[in-house]
Amino acid sequence: MNINRDYKNRQIIPRLYPYKYAFYLGEIKPKIRHDLNIKPSKEYLKKEKKWLFNKSLPYAIEFVGEALILNDYNNKNSVEAAKFILKKQKYISNITKQLANEFLKNPNEIPSFNLFDIDIYKEISLLKKNIRAYSINAINWINIALYYAILGQIEKANHAIRVALNLSPYNRFILRSAARFFLHKGDSEKALSILRNTEYTKYDPWLLASEISVSQVNDTRSSNIKIARNILDHLDVSPKDLSELFGSMGTLEINSGNAKKRNYLKKL
């Protein structure tokens, strides 16, 4: 098969990948900081006291549960309670085990994935079952669209993407996945309109980066460049959330021959 790749017009466009990839790669939400200054509520302190007094499973679960909600990962008592839960493996459910594991896990740890290891037909069958049980979950529709697209069943994928967009028209993962799908389909105008039709593009650096890149693919000028520059100048968003925007803006400046700006972005 002859694949024509356009090496001269390279852009940083969003990827369409399974939700779990995006989740672990940190695309869907910022990483939780572990050094937050926690202001414990009366109820939280009461739960901590009860755990220290009783040292039993129900109190450990309640205490670790609230610690997870409050992001109080540095509290040695809650860490001790989470370890206590894991020691009681015989008496706890998988959901409880996950609570303790999630609380104790290293935030920088990213599990490895390989898309080629996935049995696509098996995944589609499972996703169909899940959609039947809970059809309003837009993530399942995106995942099934990806697998249909891999199999070349573009019409089925198209339908799934449209359902996902109707269910969640404001979500970063859904919008970026849909834009990527329409680019893959060769409909760059549709991809661009999806990104431009939401007001969140102006506030979300990930959507902004996608909009700027897709505009370049579509040979149109993005009206959000000024906003993007402003965000990059002020840097009040985490570097990880800005990385793609830096890339998109850098590509834009290089393509337009703005050497000064290009160096500026390189420095950052």
């Binding site: 939400k29 910022p30 939780i32 937050l36 549960g65 459910s93 959901i95 409880t96 609570l99 999630e102």
Partner: peptide
Amino acid sequence: AGVSATIAIFSKLGGISKEE
């Protein structure tokens, strides 16, 4: 399962940062 629905959801999400 021994936990509330809220804790189960928060665990699956790996917690949610306060700013969000």
